[in-house]
């Protein structure tokens, strides 16, 4: 029974990992840019949701559309102004340093605006555990998992069915060919970044009701996104979901079986092994063959 409870907890955590990583994965897949400020975007989402909840009493899950809107605008501008310039003037690896610099700036700004203290959001429906036989489920965590899955499904639909999704995928596969077909590649990159930032923000809002958070956590969430992408595969919501769930279960499993201090070590050991054995992830790269 303990095993089932561990797996259930792992899945809830995994849904959150998946959602927080999907935007990172999209940017990596479409543009080849590693966005080290992704975790900072997640934290901005968490703080926006906290602010709305704290000052207006709006439930964080209801605030998600607002958070996503704000971050989408931010993401679009960020890409068009900074990232594109860095990629054009230097290299993809150097653009990574630009995103790291932005992550530092964002973290510092969050500390100045919201203080470095730990924050947490407690929605009205918390504290009424749902008991199913011998498994105890927290409604907050269930809501978090459900919201994560709905959003991941929505993103998959957007990418597969909508015109924007088709253009994004086309640009990812071959930028030149897409441009020859009349696609404004820079605009599409901006849009991709906007989508990515929006989903990072949504993940942050959901994160707020599950875990306490503070600005320095951004590094951790960037690393998590990395591991999820390497585990699952680049560029697709399905890959992020697989990677996220595997990571979640692995993390709760490790702290249960080996010791509470070891999930991180396990996580990175699996990351390195996975890179060596199958660098394209369990589901492979959605857009191109990776070396």
């Amino acid at each position: 029974m303990l095993a089932i409870q561990t797996i259930a907890d792992g899945l809830v955590l995994g849904g959150l990992y998946a959602l927080s990583a999907v935007g990172f994965s999209l940017i990596f897949g479409v543009m080849g840019v590693v966005n080290l400020s992704h975790g900072a975007l997640v934290m901005i989402g968490a703080y926006l949701a906290w602010f709305v909840w704290h000052s207006l009493g709006v439930d964080p899950l209801l605030a998600i559309p607002v958070v996503m809107g704000v971050l989408a605008v931010f993401g679009y501008v960020y890409q068009r102004v900074l990232i594109q310039l860095a990629v054009d003037r230097s290299s993809h690896v150097a653009s990574m340093l630009v995103t790291f610099g932005v992550a530092l700036m964002l973290r510092n700004t969050l500390v100045l605006v919201f203080s470095p203290d730990l924050r947490s959001i407690t929605p009205s429906y918390s504290g009424h555990p749902l008991v199913l036989g011998s498994i105890v489920l927290d409604p907050v965590r269930l809501a978090a998992l459900a919201a994560s899955l709905v959003l991941l499904g929505a993103l998959a639909m957007i990418l597969q069915r909508s015109k924007m999704g088709r253009v994004i995928r086309a640009t990812a596969q071959q930028e030149l060919a897409a441009r020859l077909c009349g696609v404004n590649a820079h605009h599409i990159y901006g849009l991709t970044f906007a989508v990515s930032a929006a989903f990072a923000g949504a993940a942050g809002a959901i994160l707020g009701i599950v875990l306490p958070f503070s600005p320095p956590d951004e590094g951790l969430w960037t690393l998590n996104a990395f591991v999820v992408v390497v585990l699952g595969g680049v560029g697709s919501p399905a890959g992020a979901l697989v990677g996220g769930l595997v990571l979640g279960v692995m993390s709760t499993g490790t702290s249960q079986l080996i010791g509470a201090a070891f999930p991180n070590a396990m996580m990175f050991a699996v990351l390195v092994l996975m890179l060596l054995v199958r660098p394209s992830g369990l589901l492979g790269n959605a857009f191109a063959g990776s070396r």
């Binding site: 590693v34 990395f226 010791g259 990175f268």
Partner: peptide
């Protein structure tokens, strides 16, 4: 055998594993 970003990230992973082991 890994190149580019994959090598970079694998090294980051190696350093994190060593840090966690040293710590725990």
């Amino acid at each position: 055998r890994l190149r580019g970003i994959y090598f970079a990230v694998a090294m980051l992973g190696v350093s994190q594993v060593l840090a966690e082991l040293t710590n725990n």
